[in-house]
Amino acid sequence: METISPESPLASVKSQWPGKALFTENQTVRQDDLLKALALAPYWEDEHGVVYVLPDAPWGHRSSHCLNALLARLEPARANAVLRPKESGHYAAKIHASAEAPQGTRAKRWMIDPLPASELDHFIQAFSACHWGALRTPVFRAWQ
């Protein structure tokens, strides 16, 4: 590892770097964001899957990936989709297949961006019709 020369502009940045306090603050913000997301009721759910639609708020944007991953870990038998609104009036959708989806036959995760807001009900119909434990590919091609 290189040592930064005292004359280097990076030396002044490093001397002012808040270090661990910055990471602790970021971790606290992420935890708060995730707790807000988990407090939301699912937009749609059944025994095979769940869909969350996050609000157009900074914490909603920051927590979408973490919520998607956490749901996959907490409920591996259920597929999940986490949607967050975008400035364009569309959604960005992160989809995670259930652990029962066969390995090597298809992707376990999808991203649909943009998903037109007018297609939300159609997306949920397609999501709910997926046989997550079967060898067929989900019907998400319409938005890709």
Rank of each mutant, 00 (worst) to 15 (best):
residue 82 V to W: 10
residue 36 K to G: 03
residue 99 A to H: 10
residue 143 W to N: 01
residue 88 S to L: 06
residue 143 W to P: 01
residue 85 P to N: 02
residue 36 K to R: 15
residue 28 T to H: 07
residue 33 D to G: 01
residue 122 H to V: 08
residue 140 F to L: 10
residue 8 S to E: 07
residue 115 L to E: 06
residue 65 H to M: 13
residue 137 T to G: 03
residue 136 R to S: 13
residue 87 E to Y: 02
residue 78 R to K: 15
residue 95 I to G: 06
residue 105 T to E: 11
residue 78 R to I: 03
residue 48 H to R: 15
residue 50 V to D: 09
residue 78 R to T: 04
residue 6 P to T: 03
residue 12 S to R: 13
residue 119 E to Y: 02
residue 24 T to M: 07
residue 112 I to Q: 07
residue 27 Q to T: 06
residue 115 L to V: 08
residue 35 L to E: 10
residue 144 Q to T: 05
residue 138 P to N: 00
residue 95 I to Q: 11
residue 99 A to F: 13
residue 26 N to Y: 10
residue 110 W to N: 03
residue 19 G to M: 11
residue 108 K to G: 08
residue 79 A to R: 03
residue 26 N to H: 10
residue 79 A to Y: 03
residue 115 L to I: 07
residue 20 K to S: 10
residue 144 Q to I: 04
residue 21 A to P: 01
residue 25 E to S: 11
residue 25 E to A: 09
residue 2 E to S: 12
residue 128 S to L: 01
residue 48 H to F: 12
residue 16 Q to I: 00
residue 7 E to D: 15
residue 109 R to Y: 07
residue 130 C to I: 07
residue 42 P to G: 09
residue 134 A to N: 14
residue 79 A to I: 04
residue 76 P to C: 04
residue 55 P to V: 07
residue 35 L to M: 08
residue 60 G to R: 08
residue 46 D to P: 02
residue 32 D to K: 12
residue 53 V to H: 10
residue 75 E to K: 08
residue 43 Y to H: 15
residue 141 R to E: 13
residue 54 L to N: 05
residue 113 D to Y: 11
residue 20 K to A: 10
residue 37 A to Y: 04
residue 36 K to A: 11
residue 13 V to H: 08
residue 110 W to A: 06
residue 10 L to F: 12
residue 117 A to W: 01
residue 38 L to Q: 11
residue 104 G to R: 05
residue 109 R to G: 14
residue 1 M to C: 01
residue 138 P to F: 01
residue 11 A to L: 03
residue 91 Y to A: 00
residue 71 L to K: 05
residue 7 E to P: 05
residue 124 I to G: 10
residue 17 W to F: 12
residue 58 P to Y: 00
residue 51 V to Y: 07
residue 21 A to R: 04
residue 96 H to M: 12
residue 144 Q to H: 10
residue 125 Q to P: 02
residue 42 P to R: 05
residue 26 N to R: 13
residue 143 W to Y: 01
residue 13 V to I: 14
residue 112 I to T: 06
residue 37 A to L: 01
residue 75 E to M: 06
residue 128 S to K: 08
residue 80 N to V: 07
residue 19 G to T: 09
residue 33 D to S: 04
residue 139 V to C: 03
residue 118 S to C: 03
residue 84 R to T: 14
residue 79 A to W: 02
residue 143 W to I: 02
residue 75 E to P: 00
residue 80 N to L: 06
residue 137 T to D: 06
residue 68 N to Q: 02
residue 89 G to K: 11
residue 4 I to E: 04
residue 92 A to L: 14
residue 134 A to C: 13
residue 127 F to L: 02
residue 45 E to A: 09
residue 28 T to D: 05
residue 109 R to H: 13
residue 55 P to D: 05
residue 37 A to H: 01
residue 132 W to D: 09
residue 112 I to P: 01
residue 109 R to M: 15
residue 22 L to Y: 11
residue 18 P to Q: 07
residue 29 V to R: 08
residue 138 P to V: 00
residue 56 D to G: 14
residue 92 A to M: 13
residue 138 P to R: 00
residue 75 E to V: 03
residue 132 W to R: 04
residue 54 L to T: 05
residue 61 H to T: 04
residue 59 W to D: 00
residue 10 L to N: 08
residue 5 S to K: 13
residue 118 S to K: 05
residue 45 E to Q: 15
residue 104 G to S: 05
residue 19 G to K: 10
residue 41 A to S: 10
residue 92 A to W: 13
residue 96 H to N: 14
residue 139 V to A: 13
residue 107 A to H: 09
